[in-house]
Design a protein around this nucleic acid. Structure first.
Lengths: 182, 182, 182, 182
DNA sequence: TCTTAACCGAGACGGTACGTCCGGTCTTTTT
DNA sequence: AAAAAGACCGGACGTACCGTCTCGGTTAAGA
């Protein structure tokens, strides 16, 4: 296992590289050079750049408290809209988007990473949302949470159409209609 | 640019390679060797393996008629369920899945390819669905089409949960509830 | 056989390219492009860049009259010195040197070209010199001509030492001593 | 840079290739394959096939003691004839000639290599000869050494005329006449 | 004058080699 | 003992030319 000092340097390096350069440009050699670490040190701990990046994201998320915070103002529609706006902001944040796209691309060809991603980043978020829905009286909170999140991801992943406030409002309205809550 | 005979050989090669080997293993050299074509011939026409793969998919889709066929039995729920099952079958078809995942990964880092993908493969499908919804009396067919398609893609892309008949039925029910159609 | 117009364009192109760029950079494609001629037109007439270059040199030498002119002032030493200076000037002329070095390098790996070079460019020069020596009463004009020319070439080919007036004078004196002429 | 084991493998490979195949056929890929070495290993240490070949020749010359041995029997004419015969034998040795021609061709377009060649291989030889001439009472040993060596090189380089015993004898006689030694 | 055959440009094509980059492994040296 | 430094093999990258090969268009004869 790598020492904490080394891990930090590597995390810092991989995040800065992933931000500044194009996705897919991430290389073990580049990370090693940026981190001032030998390649062997990387290989001792991580099998791929995807793994390093993911580890770095996890560590950062842990540092920042990491818990998904779903607002609860009592008004479900308002809360969902706020959540959508926050999610969209995170997905399109210039310092985050390249990282997330890199991880997404990696997931397509790496089942192990996909599983980790699901369990450690995706599941907590969905649980937070479905908890809020349950508190709002939704009878099928898991399904509705998916119905709420998927179109946002879909637009982002396939870069299909822009996100604007009108769409968010309409989307939330549709989701609430599906949830059988007046 | 490239002569038709050459294009065909290359399409055949890239499809067979994408199927049999792991995604991301596609290389220009490999395609050239399999197609019995020189590397320069590839580079003269396509800038990347992603572009070749996409071109091959387009050509195949054109060969096969290519039109998205949405069933119309009069019963919207039945039709949507059939459509979902067909889409899921296509996404998880062992000869298709590696190709689609490769293209999806490529899209994350290639805006141009993403645009082509949206316009030539995704848009027709969504239009087909929203047309069917409109005929079914849905007032917001585009939004509902997205609500219908996105969770299917979401589960497939993030490999989040398996597809089964029960989920399909529930999903269709949710979408119909959101569409304000009794 | 290539038409005269084509030959001229090609000769012009190859000479200009050989001058301006580094030796060994001459390529069939480059010559074809510069001459505004298709590659096939080149290959129909010449087997290699060396052959083109040599043909161009021959043509130019024919255009300019091409005969080797050995001065005959009555004083053999003076004439040889003048000849040495003229030869050195030609060898080190910036517009000639790259061409001659290119041909020389080509000769090392191309016996056919070497033979042509000997017969069409080298032999006339040596004959001119040995004629002058014979008129000067030298008993072994061919051998002495070689003794005169070889060190000049040697210094040029191996870039061994600079040419200066003092060396030329000494060299001519040595050669005359060897020629048994007082 | 390169480890000794690697250097040896590369030297061996380049010498065998230079001997068996035509000059100018030497390629970095070929040498790498023959030596069982990756291309990068070659490029890390040598910039061109010429440099490798030259390095190999130097190493071999160092291994074999490498000193130029000029015979000294007391009779200058006899010694020079022996030296000429030995030099000619070396230049026309089937296992040496391709190497030397390759290096000669390379020198035409590579000033750095030319300088190395002059200092490490040519200069020692000329010094050996001029030393012998000085011991023989020649007043201008350097100039005469050049006068002796140049025509031999000239004939070899330009493949002008064959070497035979009669020519060698005449040549030595001419040189000695030029040297002002009875 | 009208063929008709050679010449020509354009450039796709299968190749070989280029010189670079990176993936992983292994050795050497430093700390 | 762990780490940096980096040499090493393998293999793909994207480019430059190679020499061959159709394609149409254009000249320049001979019929």
């Amino acid at each position: 296992m790598a020492r904490q000092r080394t891990r930090s340097k590597v995390h810092e390096a991989v995040l800065s590289l992933a931000c500044e350069s194009r996705v897919g440009t991430l290389t073990m050699e580049g990370v090693a050079a940026r981190a001032g670490v030998s390649k062997q040190t990387l290989y001792r701990t991580w099998p791929s750049t995807g793994a390093i990046l993911f580890d770095a994201l996890l560590a950062r998320s842990a540092d920042e408290g990491g818990d998904v915070v779903v607002p609860d103002s009592g008004n479900l529609a308002t809360d969902l809209e706020g959540l959508a706006v926050a999610t969209i902001a995170e997905l399109t944040d210039p310092t985050q988007e390249p990282l997330l796209r890199a991880v997404t691309a990696e997931i397509q060809s790496n089942e192990g990473l996909a599983a980790q991603f699901r369990e450690m980043l995706l599941a907590p978020q969905l649980h937070g949302i479905s908890d809020r829905l349950r508190r709002g009286g939704v009878t099928d909170p898991d399904g509705i949470a998916e119905l709420f999140v998927a179109p946002i991801f879909h637009r982002w992943l396939l870069r299909s159409r822009p996100f604007d406030a009108a769409w968010v409002a309409t989307h939330v309205a549709r989701v609430l209609r599906a949830s059988s809550v007046s």
